[in-house]
Design a binder for these strands. Structure first.
Lengths: 200, 200
DNA sequence: GTCTATAAAGCGATAGAC
DNA sequence: GTCTATCGCTTTATAGAC
C-alpha cells in the first residue's frame, strides 16, 4: 500500500507524530508560540525534546505542521464545498456554533493570530494568507447575495465581509476571556440577518 | 509641593520611569509580554536591565504599570464624561478612528488581550475586568438608545454591546495583519447605523 | 539610581550511544 | 526512533560597588 510502510516503523512514526501535533496544539493554544517550550510539548506527548526534534527539526517547523494539520482536519470535518451566497454565510454561522465545542482550537487561532501580527513571527505569512482567502470568500458570498437581491441596499460586500470576520474573531476573544458565556452563533446569525432582506 | 521632590532626584526618577514605560509599551506591543525581554526594553530606554528593575521590581509589575499608564493617558486624552446613549456610541466610533493613528497602542491591546485569555497570564485579571466594564458601559448605551426609540426593534442591548466590542477588536487584528488597509472607523459607524432607526 | 558581575534556570538545537 | 548529555545562549532576578 503505502511506500513508507515497512512493518511497525511506519505506524509508530505516525502515532508519535500525531501525539506530538496534538500536544503542540494544546500548548500553543494556552501559551502561544513564544510561550511554549519544546520540552513541555515533548513531555506531554510522552517523549523527550530531542525525540520530538527527530520528527520536527525546528520549533517553527512544528508550528507550521500544527497549522497544516488543523487545516487538513478542518477540510475533512466540514468540507468547504463550492458554497456560494447565502449557503456560505450559513456555513459561517455553523462554524461559529461548532467552535463553541472546540475551545482548544478557538484558543489556538485567537492567540496565534494576534501573536502573528508582527511580520517577523513564523506564522505571519500563514495568517496573512488565511485572512486574505477568508475575506475573499466571504466577500464573494455577499456579492452573490446582493445579485440575488437578498442584501440590504447600501451594504458593500467587501465591508460586510470584514465586519463579519471581525465580529467572529472578536466574539471568540470575549468567549475565551469568560466575558461572554452565551452562545456566539446566535450573535453571528443576528448580525447577518440584520444585513439581509430576509433571515438566513 | 510633592513629598518626593528632593532636588533633581525626583525629576530624573520621573523621566526614567516614563522612558521605561514608553519603551516597554512599544516592546510589549510588537512582541507581546512573553516575547519581550527586560534587557531589550531597558536598552531601548537607555539603561541596563538591573537599572530598570530598580524602578519596577519584576517583569509582571512592569506590565501592570504599562497598562495603568495607558489607562491614565487615555482618560486624560479622551475623558469618558458621563456619556450616555448615542453619545457613548459616537465616542466608540471616534475611538476607532483615533486608533488608526495609534498603531502601537492597538497592537498592545490586541496582542495582550489574546495572550491574556489564559487565567495564569499576569494581565488576565486586568483584561477580564476591562471587558466587563466596557460591555456594561456599551450595554447601557444601547439601553438608553432603546428607551429613546432610536434602537431598531428586536435588538437586544447586551447582544449588541458584545457585537460592537467584538467588531472593533476583530477589525484591529485585520488592520494589524495588513488585511484591512481601509479605515476601521467607517465600518464601525456603518455597523452601528444599521442597528439604529436613524444614523448617528 | 545606575552600574558590573553573576547566579539559577530555561531555551532551542546538536552529538553520539543504543 | 528515542535516549542521555551537553553546548551556547538568553532569560529573570539578585548582590554589591560606586
Amino acid at each position: 500500500m503505502d511506500a513508507d510502510r515497512d512493518g511497525d516503523g511506519y505506524q509508530k512514526g505516525r502515532d508519535t507524530r500525531a501525539q506530538i501535533l496534538d500536544a503542540a496544539m494544546r500548548q500553543f493554544a494556552v501559551s502561544g508560540y513564544r510561550g511554549s517550550s519544546l520540552r513541555d510539548i515533548a513531555a506531554s506527548a510522552g517523549l523527550t525534546h530531542p525525540g520530538l526534534l527527530y520528527h520536527f527539526p525546528t520549533k517553527a517547523s512544528l508550528l507550521s505542521a500544527v497549522l497544516e494539520y488543523r487545516d487538513r482536519v478542518d477540510s475533512q470535518d466540514r468540507p468547504v464545498r463550492g458554497e456560494l451566497g447565502l449557503d456560505a454565510l450559513r456555513s459561517m454561522v455553523a462554524s461559529a456554533r461548532h467552535n463553541e465545542t472546540q475551545r482548544g482550537i478557538v484558543e489556538l487561532f485567537a492567540v496565534l493570530s494576534a501573536e502573528a501580527t508582527g511580520t517577523d513571527h513564523p506564522a505571519h505569512e500563514y495568517f496573512a494568507r488565511r485572512y486574505a482567502t477568508l475575506l475573499a470568500r466571504v466577500t464573494s458570498a455577499y456579492e452573490v447575495a446582493r445579485d440575488e437581491g437578498a442584501l440590504r441596499p447600501g451594504i458593500d460586500p467587501s465591508a460586510a465581509a470584514s465586519q463579519l470576520v471581525a465580529l467572529m474573531d472578536g466574539l471568540q476573544v470575549q468567549w475565551l476571556m469568560g466575558a461572554r458565556p452565551t452562545p456566539m452563533g446566535d450573535l453571528v446569525k443576528a448580525h447577518i440577518d440584520a444585513q439581509l432582506t430576509r433571515p438566513l
